[in-house]
Design a protein around this nucleic acid. Structure first.
Lengths: 193, 193
DNA sequence: CGATTTCCGTACCGATCGATATGGTAGCGT
DNA sequence: ACGCTACCATATCGATCGGTACGGAAATCG
């Protein structure tokens, strides 16, 4: 029943796997890269996490609750403008980390071959889910009268999300945080009021 | 000296290769996918284009002069505002094509494994070069007094570029053109004046 | 027509891909 | 101390990766 316990830390190994995917994307990461970074042998990896795809999906979930936490927390800000500020500022912080520039949700599996349709679709679905949450939050703000008449909360959410994706793309090229912060600040200057 | 001529059209085969890369990215595309789509045998492909990496770089060049032509042409517009309009409108058109949603320059090689560093770097360099051209154009517009004082043309260019990248990302998820056009229109509403 | 040059098609190369079979053993419960 | 269980390590699986060697055929030249 209760045999030998595993010799590695499940969560810590998952964290390391996430960083490898974060750097090189799903298809750019080989299993040997993962085992080397995680300090886990191949059969142990399969026993603990399933397979490469399942491991990536677990990493997405971990990313969601870890580095991308700001995206959820931003929704709790009192005003739509504060939501946008929080989201943009947090995004810049995350995508310019030295360990892995960019956003796992954006470039982890943006365009893939036929063998990675699943992870691509799941990544896209998570991005869409966040945009939807953002839209709902702005819908609420619209009811509270925070926007001038004629403002579409859905468009606002899509626009803001597009901006965060663009920040992530530029971060992968090594754009420094202050430059991305300037973009974010400039975008906020055009916020509806 | 002059032997048997090749049995396929060089440019047309290149066009087809570009579309495959466009859909699946560099690492998501196998050589067998390319030969199948191009109607060219493997040795002929190597004889004509070099190798996979060289073929991709040729596709980038073709993309630059074909589908992404609007990005250059936009710079010729008389005002900065018209440049932005042209660029955004053209971007939406290109990234929502049915044959291959998204932008080859963005998701062709955004995050890669160690075997694709070259194509990743070249893609990033091309994006950066376009941003630089955009910055220079806005610099010129600033001298012409098109912006209110305190406006940084470089930030403006980065902001606009980030938006186009974000449009490309959302397009890969199947966002319809009209939705992206709404984002673009909304962004233009915040243009400095 | 013959000679030469280049291309096409098959078949194959070593390397690496993701995923496993197998045996030895460390650890827990009794 | 013993037996059972589950983990670790090596070695390997078939498939596919990008890239080529080689022989036969097609087209242009003299």
């Amino acid at each position: 029943m209760t045999g030998r316990p595993r010799a590695f830390d499940f969560d810590e190994a998952l964290e390391r796997a996430m960083r490898v995917f974060w750097r090189h994307g799903y298809e750019g990461t080989a299993l040997s890269d993962l085992t080397a970074a995680m300090g886990v042998n191949r059969p142990s990896l399969y026993a603990a996490y399933g397979n490469k795809e399942a491991l990536f999906l677990r990493c997405l979930e971990r990313y969601h609750r870890g580095p991308a936490r700001h995206a959820r927390e931003a929704l709790a800000e009192p005003t739509a403008r504060a939501v946008a500020e929080h989201l943009l500022r947090g995004t810049v912080e995350v995508v310019t980390r030295e360990e892995g520039p960019g956003c796992l949700l954006v470039h982890g599996a943006l365009a893939t071959g036929p063998g990675a349709e699943g992870v691509r679709a799941e990544s896209a679905a998570r991005r869409a889910a966040h945009r939807e949450a953002l839209r709902a939050r702005f819908e609420q703000a619209a009811l509270a009268g925070e926007f001038p008449p004629g403002t579409d909360p859905g468009v606002l959410a899509d626009h803001l999300a597009a901006l965060t994706y663009g920040l992530a793309v530029q971060a992968t090229e090594g754009a420094p945080p202050d430059r991305l912060h300037l973009i974010a600040a400039h975008a906020l200057r055009g916020w509806p009021h």
